[in-house]
């Protein structure tokens, strides 16, 4: 039972961390290697919110707004010139990540920052004391996944984004301003990444390098998921389960690299990953 809870909550955390990266990759076909930096920016929004004496929950909208605003600028300055050079986009966003990390260091210092917990304590569930926050993470993942799906399925922007995903040239021919769709998607994806940064703060310390630890895992999950949130959810559950099971029954060290290794193998066998459905 404990293992099952661990699997579900681990999958939820992986989903939260990867959602922003997936939104961008799905529509733009660009890997945002500055994703880690956006997670960090989000977490520092929680630090700032705490310093301003705001309610810890207020950091969530703040981080989304800051992340989306930064995303807009980054799309305009860095991503837009590189749409036709996806490998170069990886490098440029990695460089952007270095720059953001150093700017955060200059502003806040290297020190580990501590933020107030969003939710503390444990609840009794199935006869176990389980972390309340981890259970909340499942709810947060469902909310994020649900609102992304609603956005894609139920709004004009979502319709346009799906058109761009399927066939960009055709979408442009139909009079869709694809540049704006890309800009909006990148901003939303960046906002989601920053939001995820806040949601991570109760689990981790906040420091200028915190995002890098999550970047590779999120990147591999998104590669396996292709462009779909449903596939991402499946990938998170499968890989989360593998990570927890390997950690529990073999070794946590192997568990921590299992996502990356397994994703590489899955992609070798089936280059389209879980997105074939």
């Amino acid at each position: 039972m404990l293992i099952l809870l661990d699997v579900v909550t681990t999958a939820a955390i992986l989903f939260i961390v990867s959602a922003g990266l997936l939104a961008i990759f799905g529509v733009l076909k660009i890997i945002n290697f500055a994703h880690g930096a956006w997670l960090t920016v989000g977490a520092y929004c929680a630090v700032v919110a705490a310093r301003l004496g705001l309610n810890p929950w207020a950091a969530l909208p703040l981080a989304f707004a800051v992340g989306a605003a930064l995303g807009t600028v980054a799309e305009w300055l860095i991503i837009r010139p590189l749409y036709r050079r996806p490998l170069d986009a990886i490098l440029a966003t990695w460089g952007l990540g270095i720059v953001i990390g150093q700017l955060i260091t200059l502003a806040f210092g290297r020190d580990v920052q501590i933020t107030p917990n969003l939710l503390g304590g444990t609840v009794a569930l199935f006869g176990l004391d389980y972390s309340l926050y981890r259970l909340f993470a499942v709810l947060a993942a469902v909310l994020i996944g649900g609102s992304c799906a609603a956005l894609l399925e139920g709004t004009r922007l979502g319709l346009k984004a799906r058109a761009v995903i399927m066939n960009e040239a055709l979408a442009r021919a139909l009079g869709i301003d694809t540049a704006r769709v890309r800009l909006a998607t990148f901003a939303i994806g960046a906002g989601l990444s920053a939001l995820a940064g806040v949601l991570l703060t109760p689990l981790t310390s906040v420091d200028p390098n915190m995002g890098v630890a999550w970047l590779i895992g999120a990147f591999m999950l998104v590669m396996v998921a292709g462009g779909s949130f449903a596939a991402l959810a499946v990938a998170c559950l499968v890989f989360g389960a593998v990570q927890v099971l390997v950690s529990t029954f073999v070794s946590p060290i192997l568990g921590s690299i299992s996502v990356a290794v397994l994703a590489a193998v899955v992609l070798r066998i089936s280059p389209r990953g879980f997105a074939r459905a």
Binding site: I78, P81, L82, R85, D88, L91, A92, G95, L96, G97, I98, V99, G101, Q102, L103, T105, L106
Partner: peptide
Amino acid sequence: PFLWQLILGSAFVVVIILLP
């Protein structure tokens, strides 16, 4: 130490975009 990384990172981004 920090500034050097910042300069290097910025130069990298600029070169990738403008001078591939």
